[in-house]
């Protein structure tokens, strides 16, 4: 590898100001990753004393833009045009490019959603700048260089990446990696209407049809699993675990005896003779933790076990082990989650 040291012209970083967040949405429904990124942008901006911007493109989106003003952004730049109704790569890139050329933000954060993961690289290329994928940690140096930390090799290593001589600096971040800020009851900041020549909004891709997707029913695909073990005494009691799984946006899974008894489908069995799963969260309820079971789930990111027997082997695998009766804990928890949702 040869590095041509001379002739590298340093850019003037002071010409680039502000942390901009792309407002990810489908048909005007804002993806929650957007608020998480606004929260992070605010943190970064405070360190270098820059403003926070949101950029939203779509059709008939004025109420959404007002909603964004409840999250402590300084300016919302809006491109409202019927041709921007649904995400299309070419017009969205053109709009985004227009925004960057006018506003010159130093950092652009984009959610790593199906849209963000196509739009961000297309834009980065048009701007001839760097893009760091799926960042899990973001920080900023005094000289406005963004410190981007991301996993690679399937999460087996972490890389710290900077974009020292290009602006804007771009990063994508997955949903639920950063913290969402609280919603303010009042609006702050301002909305700035932007225009773009309509001929820039043409596309060589046409949307023909939109088919709603059935919820995926594979336990391998779930981010959250609630596992029923033999601590469950009768089939009817599975209902409360199903309710918990629904509240957490997850699915119900089981140990082998539950599948063998016919209480649950075989395809929901975790373990050596069942499925291998690696969810973000797994809550085992009344599961003893035999090796044949743990072999199928011990790579899960967060393992919570509820078992009334303190010597149950599952507590060697769990990150958080609750020694207690699932028949008391689960109904209480369901009530708390429901009450909590009511508050928000």
């Amino acid at each position: 590898i040869e590095y041509v040291e001379d002739e590298v012209v340093s850019i003037d970083k002071s010409l680039w100001k502000g942390i901009a967040v792309y407002v990810d949405h489908i048909d005007g429904v804002i993806h929650p990753v957007t608020y998480e990124l606004i929260g992070k942008a605010r943190e970064l901006a405070a360190k270098i004393n820059h403003p926070v911007y949101a950029i939203m493109m779509g059709s008939n989106i004025s109420s959404q833009c007002h909603e964004l003003l409840h999250y402590n952004v300084d300016k919302v730049f809006v491109y409202d045009h019927e041709k921007l109704e649904r995400f299309k790569m070419e017009p969205y890139t053109a709009v985004f490019e227009d925004f960057v050329n006018t506003v010159k933000p130093t950092v652009i954060l984009v959610g790593a959603t199906p849209i963000g993961r196509q739009l961000a690289p297309r834009l980065a290329t048009r701007l001839r700048t760097g893009l760091t994928a799926d960042c899990t940690i973001l920080d900023i140096k005094e000289n406005t260089d963004l410190v981007q930390i991301r996993p690679a090799f399937g999460g087996n290593i972490m890389a710290q990446i900077i974009t020292p001589n290009n602006r804007p600096q771009m990063a994508t971040v997955r949903y639920k990696v950063m913290n969402a800020p609280e919603r303010n009851p009042y609006e702050t900041g301002e909305i700035i209407q932007c225009d773009i020549a309509p001929e820039k909004l043409d596309s060589r891709v046409d949307v023909l049809d939109i088919i709603p997707k059935e919820k995926e029913q594979f336990i391998e695909a779930a981010d959250v699993l609630v596992v029923a073990g033999r601590g469950i005494k009768k089939p009817e009691d599975l209902g409360m675990l199903q309710e918990l799984a629904d509240l957490l946006g997850g699915q119900l899974a089981c140990t082998r005896p539950m599948a063998e008894a016919g209480w649950m489908e075989a395809k929901r069995q975790v373990g050596l003779s069942g499925r291998t799963v690696r969810p973000k969260l797994i809550i085992t309820c009344g599961v003893s933790g035999a090796v044949q079971f743990t072999a199928g789930m011990n790579n899960s990111e967060q393992i919570i076990a509820i078992n009334k027997d303190e010597s149950a082997p599952i507590f060697k695998t769990a990150h958080y082990g609750l020694i207690g009766d699932l028949y008391e804990i689960i109904p209480n928890l369901i009530n708390q989650i429901k009450a909590g949702k009511g508050v928000i």
Partner: peptide, 28 residues
């Protein structure tokens, strides 16, 4: 290449473990 890898390092393994005792309400 605009991006530069400054360093690479192994991720923190989640080896953290806690056992919680208490009444059902406290545990919940």
């Amino acid at each position: 290449s605009p991006t530069q890898v400054e360093r690479i390092f192994p991720p923190d393994a989640n080896t953290h473990q806690e056992i919680w005792n208490g009444s059902s309400m406290e545990l919940t």
